[in-house]
Design a protein around this nucleic acid. Structure first.
Length: 213
DNA sequence: AAAACGGGGGC
DNA sequence: GCCCCAGTTTT
């Protein structure tokens, strides 16, 4: 499994990196990581890119965010999916951060999970990307590829998270999401993966098949 | 035109 | 565990 990840890392090197990488390079602000996650929920990474830039241009702290009217946030993040609901959630979370956590973002998974709109994927990403603490972020790319390559065999993403936590050495945890998202977008997609350009297709248990959809 | 896409929450 | 949520993208 680690060998497979090493080979994947090699071929991912020159690919366009996902949005989260940009945030990391911009100083790993946990608040931006969090809001970026909420914005990306159930919508493709590429389509949230511009919306993210527009939103953060107007507000990049909880204090700035709560001053924006709901309609303004909606307008800024359009046309990402669920934009109406997301505007509400983003504002509520920002309020909650101010009233309960002095405007800062909690740094442990259990506390993060109590926030509105925050589930395991978001909580893990904030902790690993924002605070450089151990966590495994399982989105559909990580889930699908882990199952297709036979790293794990579980129906639900939480099972994948737990299994990876046990089987994968901690020094790979921080990278796993970034790596497999890029991999999933460019090679190992959900519908018709490009197995011909995959360096680990020889050890893939479910080459070419659609997994868990 | 229709199906695919992608996390969280409520039941 | 099942089903819904809304809107864009892909087929």
């Amino acid at each position: 499994m680690v060998l497979a990840l090493t080979l994947i890392r090699e071929s991912v090197r020159d690919m366009r990196q996902p949005v989260v990488s940009e945030l990391v390079q911009k100083g790993k602000d946990p608040y931006l990581v969090l809001i970026s996650c909420l914005l990306s929920l159930r919508t493709k990474d590429a389509t949230t890119r511009e919306a993210q830039r527009r939103l953060f241009d107007e507000a990049s702290t909880p204090e700035e965010m709560v001053t924006l009217p709901k309609e303004k946030i909606e307008q800024l993040i359009y046309p990402v999916g669920f934009y109406r609901n997301k505007a509400v959630v983003i504002k509520e979370v920002s309020k909650e951060l101010i009233s309960k956590y002095n405007g800062s973002v909690p740094d442990d998974i259990d506390t993060l999970l109590t926030l509105k709109g925050v589930g395991r994927k978001t909580a893990n990403l904030v902790v690993t990307m924002g605070y450089d603490k151990p966590g495994i972020c399982v989105d559909t790319h990580v889930h699908r590829i882990s199952n297709r390559l036979g790293f794990v065999c579980t129906k639900d993403p939480e099972g994948t998270e737990m299994a990876l936590r046990e089987r994968l050495p901690p020094d790979h945890w921080k990278e796993i999401n970034d790596l497999l998202v890029t991999w999933g977008q460019n090679v190992c997609g959900p519908i018709s993966p490009f197995c011909s350009r995959c360096p680990v297709s020889h050890l893939c248990e479910k080459k070419g098949v659609t997994v868990h959809r």
